[in-house]
C-alpha cells in the first residue's frame, strides 16, 4: 500500500505536466480552430484552408521541406558513411555535431553576413568573375541555409545505424560474391533504413514549419505553413486560422511519424 501511494505521489508533477503542457495545448488548438476572427463558432477556417491561396502555400511548403530533406540526405549519407570509415570516427562525428549546438539564430545571422551584398559569398563571386548578385532573400539561400542547419540532425541517426551495422554482414555478402554496389544496395541500405527514416523524420517535420529562417534569409520569397501560423498568431491576431493550420500540421506530423516510426530526435 505504502508502495503504491509513494509511486502515485511521484507521478503527480509529471502527470500534471502531461495534462497541462502536452494534452491541453493540443486540445486548445483544435478548439480554437472552430472560431472565426470575431470569436464565433464556425467552419470558415477549414473552408478557407481549402482555397487555392492556402493550398498553394501548403504545396510550396511541402515542396521546400521535401527539397531540404532530400538534399540533406544526399549530403548526410555519404558523409556518415565516410565518417564511420575514419580512424577517430567519434571525434569526427563530434566535429560535425558541434554546429548543431550553436544557437540557430547565430547561424542564421552569420549567413545574413555571408550572403549580404558585401558579404563573403559575393566577394567570391566577384573574384571568379561572375560578379555580385542578390543572394539574400532568395529561395536558393533559404534552401541552402536550411540544409546546412539540418545536416547534423540527418547525419546522427544514419551514423548510428551504419555504426551498429555488423561488419560481418558486409564480409558475408562479399564472400557470397556480391559486388560493392550490390552489397550497398542489398545489404547496407536496407539495414540502415531505420536510420534514414529517423533522419528524414527529424528533418522533414521542422522543415515544414520553419518560420524564422523564412523571414531572415528568404525575405518574403518563401512562405511556409510555419510562417503563416506565426503571421496569424502574432500579426493579424486571427488565432482561429492559425490554429487550423496548426491542426493540419499536427495531423501531418502524426502521419509522418506513423510512416517513419516513433523515435526520439537526435541522440
Amino acid at each position: 500500500m505504502e508502495n503504491k501511494l509513494s509511486r502515485n505521489l511521484f507521478m503527480i508533477p509529471y502527470a500534471l505536466w502531461i495534462i497541462l503542457f502536452v494534452v491541453s495545448p493540443i486540445l486548445l488548438v483544435v478548439y480554437f480552430s472552430f472560431f472565426d476572427i470575431e470569436g464565433n463558432f464556425s467552419f470558415i477556417n477549414y473552408k478557407n484552408f481549402f482555397t487555392p491561396v492556402y493550398m498553394q502555400m501548403t504545396f510550396s511548403s511541402f515542396w521546400y521541406a521535401f527539397l531540404i530533406t532530400v538534399l540533406s540526405l544526399l549530403v548526410a549519407y555519404p558523409t556518415a558513411y565516410l565518417v564511420t570509415r575514419t580512424k577517430h570516427k567519434h571525434l569526427w562525428l563530434l566535429l560535425i555535431i558541434v554546429p548543431s549546438w550553436i544557437n540557430l539564430l547565430l547561424k542564421a545571422y552569420a549567413f545574413i553576413g555571408i550572403f549580404g551584398t558585401y558579404g563573403a559569398a559575393n566577394s567570391f563571386l566577384e573574384f571568379i568573375g561572375i560578379g555580385s548578385r542578390q543572394l539574400l532573400f532568395t529561395d536558393f539561400s533559404f534552401v541552402f541555409v536550411a540544409v546546412y542547419i539540418f545536416i547534423p540532425f540527418m547525419i546522427l541517426p544514419i551514423f548510428n545505424a551504419l555504426d551498429n551495422l555488423n561488419p560481418s554482414f558486409v564480409y558475408a555478402a562479399k564472400d557470397l560474391g556480391a559486388s560493392k554496389w550490390v552489397t550497398f544496395r542489398r545489404i547496407i541500405l536496407p539495414l540502415t533504413m531505420d536510420g534514414i527514416k529517423a533522419g528524414c523524420q527529424v528533418v522533414f517535420i521542422p522543415a515544414l514549419s520553419l518560420f524564422m529562417l523564412t523571414r531572415l534569409i528568404a525575405g518574403n520569397q518563401v512562405i511556409t505553413l510555419g510562417t503563416a501560423i506565426e503571421q496569424h498568431f502574432l500579426v493579424t491576431q486571427d488565432w482561429g486560422m492559425g490554429s487550423t493550420i496548426a491542426v493540419f500540421l499536427i495531423f501531418i506530423m502524426f502521419i509522418i511519424i506513423g510512416l517513419t516510426g516513433f523515435r526520439k530526435r537526435g541522440a
Partner: peptide
C-alpha cells in the same frame, strides 16, 4: 513535445 515543430508548441502555449 520533442517531435512537435516549435511553431506549434509556441502557438499552443500562447493560447494556453
Amino acid at each position: 513535445l520533442i517531435v512537435s515543430p516549435d511553431v506549434i508548441i509556441g502557438a499552443s502555449f500562447l493560447i494556453l
